[in-house]
Simulated assay, not measured.
Amino acid sequence: MLAAFTAAGGVAAGEVPEPVPGEGQVLVAPLSAGICGSDLHLVDAVAGLGDDAPRIVLGHEFCAEILEAGPGTSGRFAPGTRVVSVPHVLSPSGPVDLGLSPVLPGGFAQRAVMQESFLLRVPDGLPDDHAALTEPLAVAVHAVRAARPGPEDAALVVGCGPIGLAVIAALKADGHGPVVAADFSPARRTLAERLGADIVLDPAESSPYDRWAELGVVERPPSPLLGEGVPPGNVIAFECVGAPGLIQQIIEGVPRHSRIVVVGVGVAPDTITPVSAILKEVSLTFVFAYRQQEFAHALGLLADGRVDGNPFVTGTVGLGGVAGAFADLRSPDEHVKIIVRPR
């Protein structure tokens, strides 16, 4: 079958072995699969290995169609049913990532296998490309829930790439606000506005940390002076970039008693000054992926229209166009999410 995979030179398309469903698995045909920022990082890492580079069929954000049930399945999904799934299958040796390991192919392929017990039926009327957004939106749902937002909280989203935009959408879908969004890219700031951000700014021109008063944020006193019954700070900040130095910048910029949720995948070493956070009694939370119920919630947000998938999908390609799409995604002003259509 045809697939797009990691190679010494980056990304290539070609023939790979057909996957065979194992116990409790089903064979599917991917319909739409999104390119994630982690895919770009993985391709860079694998390319540096040269001839020792493993072949990984990418694609962990997908919508697929059931082809046939494998051994030990219930058959509750008839052939032709559209499904999404957390990108994992179960094997005798433990969970296997789909689209992130060389063991099984991900969504950038004509066929793949998925775990029947993880499958969710895609509601009628939800386009394939939008259903494939379930996975990245679930990351945002998890980040928002980790922040424990209250009705009076103001949110700051630093970085309006796919995950930052998804965080804005998740906040607004669940009725939270106001939301400040900051990004250097004019195109991404425009999309942040479309998704409901109340204040959108270019950090090169104005600081995102100077707008608290107009959002109803009241600077609370330090802990020894915080009287009984006085609520703590009402700012939550989401770091959605992963650039070194940004966590410290946010610590210095937010009011006392703020909560900071780190969603951006920083791969380089970073440094913070703990006393800066200590004196403000800032809480710092790091999040990874999502829970299965949050994945289901994300699908529901897309299906009932509380999150509009249109602003996210900025391009589509076939398997032969994946390498070019990866090159295009290096420029943040042109695309947010490119969807691969394997058929």
Score class of each variant (00 low, 15 high):
A7I: 04
V11G: 02
A12C: 09
V16D: 05
E18H: 05
E23F: 14
E23H: 14
G24D: 06
Q25A: 04
V28P: 00
A29Y: 01
C36T: 02
D39S: 10
H41C: 04
V43P: 00
D44H: 11
A47N: 11
L49F: 09
D52W: 08
A53G: 13
G59C: 06
H60A: 01
E65R: 15
A69C: 07
G70Y: 03
P71E: 13
G75K: 08
F77L: 07
A78K: 14
A78H: 08
T81D: 14
T81W: 12
V83R: 03
V83N: 05
V84G: 05
V84K: 03
V86C: 06
L90Q: 12
S91L: 10
S91V: 09
G94Q: 11
P95W: 06
G99R: 11
P102R: 11
P102D: 10
G106L: 00
G107W: 06
A112L: 05
V113H: 03
M114F: 12
A131D: 11
E135L: 00
V141Y: 06
R145Q: 12
R148V: 00
V157Q: 10
V158S: 12
G159I: 07
C160V: 10
I163G: 02
A170T: 07
H176S: 08
H176F: 15
V179L: 12
P186G: 10
R189Y: 10
T190R: 13
T190A: 14
E193T: 10
D198Y: 08
V200W: 09
A204P: 06
S207C: 11
P208G: 13
P208A: 12
R211Y: 00
R211C: 09
W212D: 00
E214I: 09
E214R: 10
L225A: 13
E239S: 03
C240H: 01
V241H: 01
V241S: 02
G242A: 07
Q249E: 15
E252K: 14
R256Q: 08
G266H: 08
V267K: 14
V267S: 06
D270V: 02
T271M: 05
T271R: 12
P274M: 11
A277F: 05
I278N: 15
I278M: 15
I278E: 13
S283A: 14
V287Y: 02
F288K: 10
Y290A: 00
Y290V: 00
A298E: 09
L299A: 08
D304S: 08
V307Y: 04
D308P: 04
D308Q: 05
G309L: 01
N310T: 14
T314V: 12
T314P: 11
T314R: 08
L319F: 01
V322I: 03
G324R: 04
A325F: 02
S331T: 13
H335P: 14
K337N: 10
I339Q: 06
I339K: 00
R343Q: 15
R343P: 15
